[in-house]
Write a protein that binds this DNA or RNA. Structure first.
Lengths: 195, 195
DNA sequence: TTTGATTTTGAGCAACTGTTCAAGTTAAAA
DNA sequence: TTTTAACTTGAACAGTTGCTCAAAATCAAA
């Protein structure tokens, strides 16, 4: 007894997310979004409430997608550290060409949002903390498997990993640095083992 | 034979820079700037040409200020590594409270600008490269003073330093992480020495 | 085939954006 | 004191922004 929704919600969120990831929240206009997802303002606002609402869905989707990629990489390797390295290589080398940005969308959010966008600042912080918790669990596993020393707490490994990963992505965002990706990833993991 | 300029150019650039540093380029409106520097549009555009022009001056000023702080820290310490550590501590611990942002304005620029802002993207890249060159020179000095092994090239030390520093600042931008600053800086420098 | 709840459309609003420029103000030089 | 080039002012413009809402389109149920 009604008209049916004519768009695939997940697909729309994914496409909008690609734009947001590339240009950031502020630099993405609602007209940009309308064109990208091929929806008129009325439909967008009926489905997502606001530009902020759509962005929220998009960044949550991104975080879930990333965690999914990490889980896949971990499943494909016996060693936790090898799984983590495979994930980092996939993101920084394979996906680097086709992804909307070389930077992590979560970190980009962390850079963009200040106290005058409290909702989105909080959301990005929350997603980052959840990712850290997931990483910590993985490093605990690595310690159980005797891959890493237990003198350093798992959460410290997780922090160190994120600092390395974020710093590395930021550096590789500069022009003409692609060739450095491989060696710098090696360096990253050898320094993790030395922690 | 004229009216005199009534504003201190350097002071205006500094104040505008603080706003840009805090909110980013896109989120800072020209009205925000007008209020902050207490100038009317006509004067601003006569002096700086455009919002981009003012931002350019501001980010160049920031880079120079930072390099000045680093030089000061290096002069106050016999050891290059101790000088670098003092600089990092000053930025991440002392200045962290009062600075407009916990993040580096150059890196923030690197995160914000895409190919549709080619001028500012290029400028931020250029300033980052110049900072790397300066850092490389310092690590060369550290090697000459036998503070660091010469097996690793100075430019690799400089890259590693930047990756650590950027990653660390990004991490410390998260809420409730201030207490971690000290230990993480120690960790950073012990890992540099192990490189 | 009609009904009616639901979704889609897109013109358009009010606020904000970066920027311009004619008019006013200033102060050194004549 | 007058002149005049330089600087400041702020109203206003044209374009963009996020968003609304009445009207049109849609389709399952009656």
């Amino acid at each position: 007894m009604a008209n049916k929704i004519k768009f695939e919600r997940d697909e729309v969120i994914r496409t909008a997310g690609q734009l947001f990831w590339q240009k950031g929240f502020n630099a993405t206009s609602t007209r940009d979004l309308q064109n990208a997802i091929n929806m008129r303002p009325g439909s967008i606002y009926a489905a997502f409430g606001s530009k902020e609402g759509l962005y929220s869905e998009a960044i949550k989707d991104y975080a879930q997608l990333m965690q999914g990629q990490l889980i896949t990489a971990l499943n494909e390797h016996e060693s936790v550290l090898n799984g983590l390295a495979a994930f980092v290589k996939k993101v920084l080398i394979e996906d680097a060409q086709c992804a909307p940005s070389k930077l992590c969308m979560l970190v980009k959010a962390n850079y963009e949002f200040t106290e005058d966008e409290p909702t989105l600042k909080l959301l990005s912080t929350d997603l980052a903390n959840k990712f850290e918790a997931f990483l910590t669990a993985q490093f605990e596993k690595a310690q159980q498997y005797k891959e890493l020393d237990t003198k350093t707490a798992a959460v410290e490994y997780a922090r160190y990993f994120q600092i390395q990963f974020t710093g590395l992505r930021s550096y590789l965002n500069r022009p003409n640095t692609h060739a450095l990706a491989g060696p710098l990833i090696e360096q990253m993991f050898s320094s993790i083992k030395q922690l």
